[in-house]
Design a protein around this nucleic acid. Structure first.
Length: 152
DNA sequence: GCCAACGTTGGC
DNA sequence: GCCAACGTTGGC
């Protein structure tokens, strides 16, 4: 199993929104970046754990832990002309975009981005890399353990 | 709102 | 295949 960090804009889907979902589970739709898609397609397995991260908001940072409960399958929004995520080049026969389903494990105290940056043992964490924009990034087991044991 | 960084597009 | 233009991300 692997560890991940998954970004969500709280105005779109916050940790509390997830907590209010049926079975506290949500399809991670809307990923339109090939690298992030490939992580889901090639490397994410049921049982993988991820930090749930709030981005593009007043207090960016880790706010919870989720787990992958369904492996990658075609993202329904790519076929929906009414969706913001509609992709005219995608067809059900040749889908371009995928999503996994994730379920809330638990909310955590906010771990602000600034605190992650200040933690020397987290050097190399992908979210901290210059110009990082990927919405899904792998997390080294050592980084995962450090955050869980020292920062939550 | 600003701006740096990055990905995608499309002309050639 | 190159690369300029453009759009998006996301912290501040």
């Amino acid at each position: 199993m692997r560890y991940w960090l998954m970004k969500s804009e709280p105005s779109d889907c916050s940790i509390d929104d997830l907590a209010a979902m049926p079975a506290q589970t949500v399809a991670w739709y809307g990923v339109r970046n090939y690298q992030a898609r490939n992580f889901m397609r090639d490397q994410m397995s049921v049982g993988d754990l991820a930090f749930f991260y709030h981005s593009s908001c007043a207090e960016p940072g880790i706010v919870g832990i989720v787990k992958v409960v369904k492996k990658a399958y075609p993202d329904a929004t790519q076929f929906d002309p009414a969706s913001h995520y509609f992709d005219p080049k995608a067809t059900p026969e040749a889908p371009r975009w995928l999503n996994v389903d994730v379920q809330l494990v638990r909310k955590t105290p906010l771990v602000p981005l600034a605190s992650l940056r200040d933690a020397a043992p987290l050097e190399g964490l992908r979210i901290l890399a210059r110009g990082n924009r990927l919405s899904i990034t792998p997390v080294d087991p050592a980084h995962w353990s450090y955050i869980c044991e020292h920062m939550l």
